[in-house]
Amino acid sequence: MNLLDLQRRMAEDVMRPLTPDFQMQTTTSDGASTQELADTYIKPNDRLSSFDRLEIYNRQYWFRVIGAVSEDFPAVGALLGAKKFDSLILAYLRENPSTSFTLRNLGAKLPQWLESHPEFAPRRHKLLLDVSRLEWAYVEAFDSAEHAPLTPSDFADLGAESTLFLQPHLQLLDLSYPVDELVLAVHQQTPPSDIMSNAVTERKQAKRARLPKMHRSQVHLAVHRFENSVYYRRIDHEAFLLLTALQTGSPLDQALEAAFAGTTLSPDDQAVKIQEYFAHASHLGWFCRQLDAGSSL
């Protein structure tokens, strides 16, 4: 076995998914014995067999990637409880293994994956989806790009067919529950060192966060970064429709039409709201210049 073959053999064995109780599998997918495979390239010692030594690396690899996802979704963990949460993350990672040099992207598909996996919270599936969407929006808002905001003189040149661009870090969410209250409660009660999976650290279970009661209620959120901190801002239905239309590239006149389609507001009231929307968004720097192709920040 040359060095390249050894590296490939080791990588395949280390990254093989754990069992549901977080142990190394005794056989591979094609039925081969893991013990026999380990014996071919790992030397045992007086305390550990080849299998035992390989299992240490196998478990530590998976504990690290489980921990990386867990740190991004503490409120999902608080909602489910440690045992069920760890099972969820392990099942998710079996289907969505790490394929990037960075662990940052590991949880990117979790909200979408949860849509087809209601078994982890059958009675609170929609609530779980909303919590996961908000927590991933936090990640995106925290480290996505920020372009130079528009200046007052830029707005003076806007016309009906103008296209406005929104900051890449701005995330717009249409939710069925006020989960911003739940997520904030978890962050306030959970020290940063405890925002990780219980399976990863194998520590005693931390005191479970007390969660506010959730009643179904449509909420629109703008999740954004301002002065290097992430904030959740509730916006009304028309503002959500307006910003969503602008975010998808609609010109200003079409975005305004979409925002107030079917509204019962008078033209004067609509004008007041539009003025408020643009004043708030401009103050927070949500409108920005479009970067030319090939430009960098």
Rank of each mutant, 00 (worst) to 15 (best):
F85Y: 14
V200C: 15
E95D: 11
T190G: 00
D157W: 05
R53F: 08
R203W: 02
R225A: 06
A258M: 07
Y231W: 06
H280A: 15
K273I: 12
P168F: 03
Q205R: 09
A137F: 09
A68M: 04
A279W: 07
S29H: 15
E12H: 08
D86S: 08
P192M: 00
A156V: 08
A199W: 08
Y57W: 12
E119D: 13
A145T: 12
V69P: 01
D269I: 06
N198G: 06
G77E: 10
S217G: 04
S193E: 09
G262F: 00
Y61V: 04
F165S: 09
Q60T: 15
T102K: 07
F260R: 00
L48Q: 10
R47C: 12
R133M: 07
S70R: 04
Y177P: 04
Y138G: 01
Q254A: 14
Q171H: 07
S197M: 07
K213I: 07
L221E: 00
V223M: 06
L106Y: 01
V14W: 04
S100M: 06
A261D: 14
S217T: 12
I42L: 14
L106M: 05
L246A: 12
R53G: 10
E238G: 01
D72W: 06
Q35Y: 05
I195C: 05
P111H: 05
L166D: 06
H237M: 11
S295C: 05
F226I: 08
Q7K: 13
Q189V: 10
L93R: 14
D46T: 13
L114G: 03
F85M: 11
S162L: 14
A38T: 03
E276Q: 14
